Simulated scan of single mutants.
Amino acid sequence: MTGDFERELTKRVWSDDAFATRLESNPVEALQSMGVSVPPGVKVKVVVQQPDRLYFTIPPMRAPESPAPSAPLNQFDLWSSKGLFIWLVPVAAKFQLLALRSAAREAGERS
């Protein structure tokens, strides 16, 4: 791996249909096959974008059964990676995403 996690992941999905299917059905296992470990407690959902679909990702506004907020909260970041990749990340998971990206970069440097 080159250390550019998003580029390598995208390239692999575009060139390997079996990997793309596995990435959507079992992302942790698929990422492990690339040398990337998902931190414990982190759940990963991968959607391979289709050209004829529109996707909506609605971030959670509150914990289940807690009172509704009085004003909208900015609870997610929209991250882009060189125009190829978009992350929608709840604030609580941002540091876990950074750890995942760092692990991918380190795996690339070792190989």
Score class of each variant (00 low, 15 high):
T2S: 11
T2Y: 07
G3T: 02
D4N: 07
F5I: 09
F5S: 02
T10C: 14
K11D: 13
K11Y: 10
R12N: 04
R12V: 06
V13T: 01
V13F: 00
V13W: 00
W14I: 02
W14D: 06
S15P: 01
D16M: 01
A18W: 04
A20F: 04
A20I: 04
T21L: 10
T21Q: 10
T21W: 09
R22L: 15
R22D: 13
L23F: 10
N26C: 03
N26F: 06
P27Q: 11
M34C: 14
G35H: 06
V36C: 12
V38C: 03
P39K: 05
G41E: 04
V46M: 10
V47K: 11
Q49G: 14
Q50A: 13
P51K: 09
D52A: 14
R53G: 02
R53S: 11
Y55R: 12
F56W: 14
T57Y: 14
I58H: 07
I58P: 04
I58M: 12
P59Y: 13
R62N: 10
R62H: 12
A63W: 10
P64A: 15
P64I: 13
E65P: 01
S66W: 09
S66V: 09
S66F: 09
P67M: 14
P69A: 05
P69H: 06
P69F: 05
N74L: 13
Q75M: 14
Q75H: 12
F76E: 03
F76R: 04
F76M: 10
F76I: 06
F76Y: 12
D77C: 06
D77T: 08
L78K: 09
L78W: 08
S80F: 08
S80G: 11
S81G: 00
K82L: 08
L84V: 03
F85G: 02
I86G: 02
W87H: 02
L88K: 04
V89I: 12
V89N: 01
P90A: 15
P90S: 15
V91A: 00
V91I: 05
A92K: 03
K94L: 06
F95G: 04
L97W: 05
L98V: 12
L98C: 08
A99E: 00
R101M: 10
R101V: 08
S102A: 15
S102E: 14
S102Q: 12
S102F: 11
S102P: 00
A103R: 10
A104D: 08
E106T: 09
E106D: 11
E109N: 14
R110T: 11
S111D: 12
